[in-house]
Design a protein around this nucleic acid. Structure first.
Length: 923
RNA sequence: GGGUGGUUAGCUCAGUUGGGAGAGCGACGGCCUUACAAGCCGUAGGUCACAGGUUCGACCCCUGUACCACCCACCA
């Protein structure tokens, strides 16, 4: 066996074997368990968030698979309309200096498909590197033929049921991408702006009104000025007109509750075509909608000549200058305001009047709310339910059309008279509506919002609208593992659409995980230069390559030197090849619920070391068990030592804790329990305790068999226990361990997951071993504090011990000799005879190590003093408690008794320590 | 403006029915001890954000405050 753990040597090998053998497929027997992957963008690559999410899914899947469930992990990718189209457009610009319009729709879409074929495998290859075990034979894509069918079906049926309609109203318009986007795709960020105060002259020449605006350019589209109906300042002006400067129009002064008297001047310019609030006001007062922008948000022909064709911010500047020139600029104030920006393009979004398709959400949401209320769907952690309810109860109709080319084209056709025909395809349209063959029909140019198709993910991937076996078996899926950032985008819509078309929930549990951030809690982003590629953590990367990766392709190239400096400071050596198992374990250890996780590379190193620890422990076990009698035949007599019984007992408890952790999505607790068991219990104590037995020529065959069997079987169980979290190393080791352990099977992946057995929990063995650990630790402590070399054998004297202590000492001499390097132990009949000694207390037992020639007395006095102070502080606290009558009167009897026991123990210990202190002082 | 989460060791974080504050990393000291120096042994370090309250007893429950993060909302 290789001396150190080399992840690269085992990971690829095992993954290929697993996949080739078809282990990832559902077994076909057992209770169904299914997780649908949140489909990553087909042209994307794996980032830390994916790594985290897929590691969690894989742990759940492997765990349930080993539990005997009929397990399906459905995998696939999303066409991600806007994101993908933007990537390909950028490529076109960079490489061929042309736009999609130069190519035309058909050619452009061809290019996107080419790009998809080219890069579409990247993320799925990277998923394999993570050890993910989805059923690759069922891989889907949100624009494959099956999804095409499902999407057409859903659209047509919703339309026929009156839940999809076409409407002309204000939408969020992205002037860069030339498409409508939904409310959710708009990010409102606070920015520094100005509040411009303009004077609008009254038409009768009697004065002016001052309006305050953050968007001066929209005044060209003003239809009115509004004041509050009860505002004394302006009441008398209601119904009069003002002259709209820079135009030849006159507009009315209207009264509306919408106006806040306290804000600004109390006069609001109303621009119904370019502001959502103004639109509402306009509706109420039947105001004219004057659209002054084209699709680029450049000024159009509805505005005066002087501004036509101007870009909106240039127009703003000119409007302000012109108003000022007219002497109508009252003042300009600095003002913080929320600016709506497109989450993809980053440009300021315009409210813009267009025809779009909408899904009526009110009735869909009702059912979606009640299914969460009644517990058919549960969020973990549950506070996300509140967020879900809040949004769902105030849900707006969903704008589903996008003016893009990449996506599912809307199955609606128009004739030359503008009649709309909705059906699954053009033939069906003609048939359904009995249209003449020669009637010219044109399909709607728009495509559907990406989330419309991914909303069908749980049932679309299983073959719907066909009634497939898979659909019947695996739907509803078991749990959805996802980030909180797409609860509205995706989770809510899936719930609504699935309930409507399947009359059942899409999943029973939504496990919401946090965002992966850098070690200081900052979001990882290219521009911050703090992005970590999970693959680099697996394979390792040298510092120069890492710097290059982080500094190329920056939006702001001037940041490169800073990013380089910080990167070189943080990771002077780059990343070592930590391997997949260490990466996964790091994710699990950080996966507490309900908060973001800060990823510190320092931690992955610790878990790589943990893998190495497991590796070497296995090496030790194999050295001692391979080709030896491990008592696995069960016919030979066997004797279990104290240590054997103890580690078996601890294994049961660990087993239960790991299962509990996974079942409650507390991967941090599960991984911690396993880590402590393997490193502390098994390696630090059990393996060490096995040495004196295995190396002692006096050990009986029965005892040897017992120890070997325990060593190998506990290891074998532990590997199965750990497999869902660290698949590769456990498979590699299990293949070597299974035969001597008397286990069989082709792969650990399909072995049974261990179940704890209550009857193997041995409280007595645990108590005995705790005592032994205290004795050994006490002796080590003396050795460490007194600077006694580990090679020096200790002799010790014992006093005040009970019969139990004596028995324990005798029974465990073998261990003490080895682990504490104890040469001999003599019982004192009269403690006064003891020479100058260092002391350790275990319960009432006093362990004395004669110090002659070992140390100076000052050091031991210091040590004793520290010990005494600590115990005295404890004692004071306990005494104070017990002296409090209210405590003794009201606290449960067992708590009071516990305190009393504690007090007497502390008093005894203090007496002994003080006695010892006096004795040393006099010497 | 409304809401959610957070504040515990130098750093990153656990602490689930209220009863003696923990881990990993880092720091310090000692060890190449026949599985492992990617290791072993030991040590130090915390007014559990702050202020009240409930309780015999509060990191934990309640109220309020501060700061951080995020979500939602139509204030020109």
């Amino acid at each position: 066996m290789e001396k150190t753990y080399q992840p690269s040597a085992i990971e690829q090998k095992w993954y290929q074997t697993w996949e080739a053998k078809g282990y990832f497929k559902p077994s076909g027997t057992g209770e169904p368990y299914c997780i649908m992957i949140p489909p990553p963008n087909v042209t994307g690559s794996l980032h830390m968030g994916h790594g985290f999410q897929e590691s969690i899914i894989d742990a759940l899947i492997r765990f349930q698979r080993m539990n005997g469930k009929n397990t399906l992990w459905q995998v696939g990718t999303d066409h991600a309309g806007i994101a993908t189209q933007m990537v390909v457009e950028r490529l076109l610009t960079q490489e061929e200096n042309c736009t999609r319009h130069d190519l035309g729709r058909e050619k452009f879409i061809e290019r996107v498909w080419q790009w998809k074929e080219h890069s579409g495998g990247t993320i799925t290859k990277q998923l394999r590197r993570l050890g993910a075990s989805p059923d690759w034979s069922r891989e889907r894509f949100t624009m494959d033929d099956g999804f095409y069918q499902a999407v057409q079906e859903v659209f047509v049926r919703l339309y026929e049921d009156g839940l999809i309609y076409r409407g002309n109203r204000l939408v969020n318009w992205d002037p860069k991408l030339h498409t409508a986007i939904s409310d959710l795709e708009v990010e409102n960020r606070e920015e520094n702006g100005h509040l411009w105060h303009f004077n609008y002259p009254l038409s009768d020449g009697s004065g002016h009104l001052t309006v305050a605006t953050t968007r001066p350019e929209t005044m060209l589209g003003d239809s009115a000025v509004a004041v509050h109906p009860e505002d004394e300042r302006y009441r008398h002006l209601i119904g009069q007109n003002v002259k709209l400067p820079l135009t030849d129009r006159e507009i009315p002064i209207i009264a509306d509750d919408y106006v806040d008297k306290e804000f600004g001047t109390g006069c609001v310019k109303i621009t119904p075509a370019h502001d959502f609030n103004d639109y509402e006001v306009g509706q109420r007062h039947a105001l004219e909608l004057i659209n002054i922008f084209d699709e680029n948000a450049h000024i159009n022909a509805n505005a005066p000549d002087a501004y036509r064709g101007m870009e909106r911010f240039a127009a703003r500047k000119k409007v302000v200058e012109d108003i000022q020139a007219l002497g109508l600029l009252e003042k300009i104030e600095p003002h913080k305001l929320k600016v709506p920006r497109g989450d993809r393009s980053g440009v300021v979004i315009e409210p813009y009047l267009t025809n779009q398709w909408y899904v009526k959400t009110a009735t869909l949401a009702e059912k979606a709310i009640s299914e969460v209320e009644n517990g058919n769907i549960q969020f973990v952690p549950s506070q996300y339910e509140n967020m879900y309810f809040a949004w769902m109860r105030d849900i707006q109709d969903w704008c589903i059309s996008r003016q893009l080319w990449w996506g599912h084209r809307i199955p609606a056709w128009y004739d030359n008279e503008g009649n709309i025909y909705v059906a699954r395809n053009e033939d069906e349209v003609r048939q359904k509506f009995s249209l003449a063959d020669d009637l010219e029909l044109k399909q709607d140019e728009d495509v559907l919002d990406t989330w419309f198709s991914s909303g069908l993910w749980t049932f679309g991937t299983l073959g719907w609208p066909e009634q497939t076996d898979e659909l019947n078996t695996f739907h509803p899926s078991s749990v959805l593992v996802t980030g909180f950032d797409i609860i509205f985008f995706w989770v809510a819509r899936m719930i609504m659409l699935t309930l409507y078309f399947r009359k059942e929930v899409p999943f029973h549990t939504v496990y919401v995980h946090g965002l992966v951030r850098d070690k200081h809690g900052n979001k990882m982003s290219k521009s911050k230069g703090n992005v970590i590629d999970p693959i680099d953590l697996i394979d390792g990367i040298d510092i120069d390559t890492l710097v290059k990766k982080r500094t190329t392709g920056l939006m702001r190239p001037q940041d490169a030197p800073d990013i380089e400096a910080v990167t070189r400071e943080d990771y002077p050596e780059g990343f070592a090849p930590y391997g997949t198992d260490a990466l996964r374990y790091t994710y699990y250890s950080l996966a507490s619920t309900g908060r973001d996780i800060n990823f510190d590379v320092g931690r992955i190193e610790g878990f790589r070391n943990f893998c190495n620890k497991l590796w070497n422990a296995s090496n030790y076990v194999l050295m001692n068990c391979q080709n030896k009698d491990c008592g696995t035949s069960d016919s030979d007599p066997i004797a279990l030592s104290l240590a054997d019984r103890w580690i078996i007992s601890r294994l049961q408890q660990t087993n239960a804790a790991v299962i509990e952790g996974i079942n409650s999505y507390r991967f941090d607790l599960a991984s911690q329990a396993l880590y402590d068991f393997i490193w502390k219990d098994y390696c630090d104590w059990y393996i060490e305790l096995s040495k004196p037995i295995l190396n002692d020529s006096d050990s009986t065959e029965e005892t040897l068999r017992g120890t070997r069997r325990t060593l190998i079987r506990v290891l074998e169980s532990t590997l199965r226990l750990a497999h869902p979290l660290m698949p590769f190393i456990t498979e590699e080791l299990w293949q070597r361990v299974k035969t001597p352990a008397g286990a069989a099977g082709e792969t650990i992946m399909l072995a049974d997951y261990p179940l704890p057995e209550a009857k193997l929990i041995d409280a007595n063995a645990e108590a005995e071993l705790d005592w032994l650990k205290d004795v050994i630790t006490g002796l080590r402590n003396i050795r460490g504090e007194m600077n006694i070399s580990p090679g020096k054998k200790l002799e010790c004297l014992l006093s005040n011990g009970s019969e139990v202590d004596k028995t324990r000492f005798e029974n465990n001499q073998q261990y003490l000799v080895k682990l504490a390097n104890l040469d001999s132990a003599d019982w004192l009949t009269d403690r006064e005879d003891a020479p100058l000694c260092a002391t350790a207390l275990v319960g009432s037992l006093e362990i004395l190590v004669p110090m002659a020639g070992l140390i100076d007395k000052d050091a031991e006095l210091g040590r004793l003093n520290k010990e005494i102070q600590k115990k005295e502080k404890d004692k004071e606290r306990v005494e104070a408690k017990l002296n409090n009558e209210k405590f003794t009167a009201k606290a449960p009897a067992e708590v009071v008794q516990k305190e009393k026991d504690k007090l007497s123990e502390l008093s005894q210990a203090l007496d002994k320590l003080k006695e010892q202190q006096e004795k040393i002082k006099t010497l």
